[in-house]
Structures are given as C-alpha cells and as structure tokens.
C-alpha cells in the first residue's frame, strides 16, 4: 500500500513538473508561431499575385475575405457566407444565408471588427451571436480572398486541399476574374522527397499558370518528357522568347513528373476540382448579391 502511494505521488509530481515546463515554452513560443503562419500566408498570397517580397503593394489594391459556413437549423442545412459589406467609410460584415438552390434565405448584420473576423475563434463567436438560438454555423474551412484594384475585381485567392499520393496536399490558387489560373503555390504536402515533392518546384507547378477555365475543364496529364525550353521558361530563366514559349504551351496538357505520375495527377485533378467548385459558388453568391442589391466593396 505504501508503495502504491509513493508511486502515485512521484508520478503525479513528475507529470506536473513536465506540464509546467511545457506550459512555459508554449506561452513563450505561441505568439511567434502565430506570427510565422500569418507572415507565411501573406507571403504566399502576395507572391501569387505577382508582388515580390519587399516590394510595396499599391495602395489601391485591397483584399477582402469571404468565409463559407455550413448552417444547420431544424429545417435542414443551408450555406452561409460571411462577407464584408458597404463601401467607403460605412463598412461592416454580413452573414448571408443561402439555401441549397442558391436562393437567399436571410441576411444578418454581424458586428465584428476586421481583425476579429480574421481570427477563427472570434469570428465564430460573432456569427453565433448574430444568428441567435436555433441555428448553428460550422466553418467549412473555405476562405476566399477577393482582390480589388481601385474597386474593380482583379483576382481571386483561394485555398484547396485534396488527396495526394499518401497524405493530403494543400494549395493556394490565384485566379483571374474569368477563372483562368494566375498562379499556384503548394502550401503543404507530404509527397516523397525527390519524386512527388517535386510538385512544389517551378517546372511543375508553373505549368498551370495561364490555363484558361475552358482548358482546365478538360485538362489531362501526359507522360512525356518535359521540353527543355519550356522548363527553363517556367523556372524564370530569362531567355529571349520566354514569354513566347509559355504562350505556346498555354493549352497543353500537364507534363507528369518522372516517377510521380500519381502526385502529378492528384495535383491536376485537385486544382481542376477546386476551381470548378469555386467558380460555381462565387457565381451563385454574386447573383444573390446583385439580385438583393447588397452593397459590397468588391
């Protein structure tokens, strides 16, 4: 009996001590970690839009985030979007609820500051407060950023996640307003180093740049050697006719990576799916905004 008690006391003490050490380090590092994630995301976003790191972004360029939620109430499921509303000085946020056919159910103003809206926790809270009892909104992990320049839309930034060879691949896509691809960045993946991991190299992912929405619908993967001139042009090696070469392959199928056909296919199909779904959703949202005369800054 005495032994049991000593063991319990000593193990408990060690656990408490360990928890204390881990807690201290967690508090010390959590701020830096969050900051890193934020910086990393912004860097990816701006580089996709074509702004180099360090170069100033013009002041006319503004980014607006739209968050998609799944709303559940006794009547069934519907889709909710948190969108910034208003123009000029009078800006705010609204939660727009659509039914599955894309018809507006209701629009609720959400009181939340722009900084709080960017944080998942405070955003969820504000939406819950706006919806009231009986309805539940769950974030669908789907954030779209609409880029405007002088009030006119110039691009969309969206993130996608799909199955890769072993684990899932997270990407960020920059689309033109006609849903053609402007840029692709691989944010996170666990493909085999040297094989599937080559998807993050310029000579693979840059093949997607310039593919139009129509091309994308029927985009295929071919197992052919990548032409040298094309690879060089994509890696950004300044040649005399780099632009011309890129133009020439603009509608060509994606060249698969050597030894990583599955990863190449996964990225191609994933990008196709992400763009198709996004185009469908944003059209519905735009229609509703237009029909209901909801003023939005984008």
């Amino acid at each position: 009996m005495k032994n049991i008690i000593t063991i319990i006391i000593r193990l408990t003490l060690s656990c408490l001590l360990a928890a204390f050490v881990m807690g201290i380090f967690f508090v010390m590092t959590s701020k830096a970690k969050k900051h890193n994630e934020h910086v990393n995301e912004e860097k990816v976003m701006y580089s996709l839009l074509g702004y180099k790191v360090g170069a100033p972004v013009p002041e006319t360029v503004k980014l607006y985030a739209v968050y998609r939620y799944i709303v559940t109430d006794p009547a069934g499921k519907s889709i909710g979007y948190l969108v910034p509303t208003g123009q000029g000085a009078e800006t705010g946020f609204s939660f727009i609820i659509l039914d599955l056919d894309g018809k507006l159910i209701e629009q609720k103003p959400v009181t939340v500051t722009a900084d709080d809206a960017a944080e998942a926790e405070s955003r969820d809270k504000a939406i819950k407060a706006a919806l009231g009892a009986g309805k539940e909104a769950v974030y669908a992990d789907d954030k779209t950023i609409i880029v405007t320049d002088n009030g006119a839309r110039t691009a969309y930034l969206l993130s996608g996640k799909f199955a890769g060879f072993k684990a899932s691949i997270s990407v960020m896509l920059a689309l033109k307003t006609d849903f053609g691809i402007r840029g692709l960045a691989i944010v996170e993946h666990e493909e085999d180093p040297g094989l599937g991991a080559e998807i993050e190299k310029g000579y693979f992912k840059n093949q997607f740049i310039g593919k139009s929405f129509a091309t994308l619908k029927t985009l295929d993967v071919v197992k052919e050697p990548l032409p040298d001139a094309y690879a060089k042009a994509m890696e950004g090696v300044k040649g005399e006719d780099g632009g011309k070469i890129l133009e020439q392959y603009k509608d060509h199928a994606i060249y698969a990576l050597t030894g990583a056909t599955i990863s190449s296919r996964a990225v191609t199909n994933g990008v196709k799916g992400t763009v198709a779904k996004f185009a469908y959703r944003i059209n519905i949202l735009d229609n509703v905004l237009k029909e209901q005369h909801i003023v939005v800054p984008f």
Binding site: A18, V21, T29
Partner: peptide
C-alpha cells in the same frame, strides 16, 4: 520507464514548439 518517457516527451515537445516558432 514511465519517468523516462515523460522526460523525453517533455523535451521533445519543447524543441518541437521552439522549432515551429523560430525556424518555420
């Protein structure tokens, strides 16, 4: 053995958090 595991796990968590924060 439980004490060893606990000690190792603590230090691994520490370096894991430090790496994630300062060497992303």
């Amino acid at each position: 053995i439980p004490t060893y595991t606990l000690t190792i796990a603590t230090w691994v968590t520490v370096i894991d958090m430090v790496l994630a924060a300062y060497m992303p």
